Computed example of a mutant assay.
Amino acid sequence: MKTVEAIKDEEKLKAMKQYVKSKSARDYCLFLLGINTGIRIHDLLHIKVNELMDEAGNMFTYLQSDLYNAPPVYLNDAVQQALNTCINERDLEHSDFLFKSRKTNEPISRQQAYRIINEASKHTGITGSIGTHTLRKTFGYHAYKKGIAISLIQKRLQHHTPSDTRQYLGLTTQAPKNLQLDVNL
């Protein structure tokens, strides 16, 4: 099995988001939810609408999932907007899979998710190894770069140790960060 990489270049990430958005609301939602939450692809594909919103159509702030509750999966504004668009455009029922296949009532396959991600990466000129784990790795990499503690990223990615998480994200060295832990008492 080949190892895939995170999308580290933010400009390439923006271009990829724009490309996927131009293809379909479902594909854009898949991509955005993946890079903003770090959820495993199998779990991502099996999310149901009722885990995202109540029967009145009010979006939850957090994914209602037993698998991802420590820490819970926050649905930021961009993700909520993409979810609303996807659900409304596809006229999904409360009990439907969010990423329901166009042909059946089942979710799209891992292979279809791979095709979506791979096509977008080729179109935007990303040359590294890309796959479904790219979404998770991109989430983890950018969370780390924004200063999120590796221990929290480890919990989200459900890894056993911080070193597993560093290795998974391709962080070979622990570069010192310019953090100012100044309580100024």
Rank of each mutant, 00 (worst) to 15 (best):
T37K: 07
I39E: 07
I39R: 05
I39C: 08
R40D: 13
H46N: 15
I47N: 01
K48Q: 12
K48H: 00
V49K: 01
M53G: 04
M53Y: 08
D54M: 00
D54L: 00
E55M: 03
G57C: 08
F60S: 12
F60L: 07
T61A: 13
Y62M: 10
L63Q: 02
Q64E: 14
S65D: 08
S65L: 05
S65M: 06
Y68R: 10
P71T: 12
V73D: 03
Y74C: 03
L75F: 00
A78Q: 14
V79C: 09
Q80V: 02
Q80S: 10
A82E: 06
E89I: 00
R90E: 10
D91E: 13
L92Y: 00
L92D: 01
E93Q: 14
E93A: 14
E93K: 13
H94V: 09
D96Q: 07
F99C: 03
K100V: 14
N105F: 10
I108D: 00
S109Y: 06
R110I: 11
Q111F: 12
Q112C: 09
Q112R: 13
A113T: 07
Y114L: 12
R115C: 09
N118L: 13
N118A: 08
N118S: 11
N118G: 02
E119K: 13
E119A: 15
A120L: 10
A120W: 04
A120Y: 10
S121I: 00
S121V: 00
H123L: 07
T124Y: 00
G125E: 02
G125T: 04
G128S: 15
S129W: 03
S129T: 09
T132M: 05
T132Q: 04
H133I: 07
H133P: 05
T134Q: 01
L135F: 09
K137T: 06
K137Q: 07
T138P: 04
T138M: 11
T138Y: 10
F139V: 02
F139L: 02
G140N: 03
G140S: 01
Y141L: 11
H142A: 12
H142V: 10
H142L: 13
H142F: 14
A143R: 14
Y144D: 08
K145D: 11
A149Q: 12
I150D: 06
L152K: 13
K155D: 06
K155A: 13
R156L: 11
R156W: 05
L157S: 01
Q158R: 15
H159E: 10
H159A: 04
H160A: 15
T161I: 06
P162T: 12
S163L: 02
S163P: 03
D164A: 11
D164K: 12
Y168W: 02
T172H: 12
T172N: 14
Q174E: 15
A175V: 12
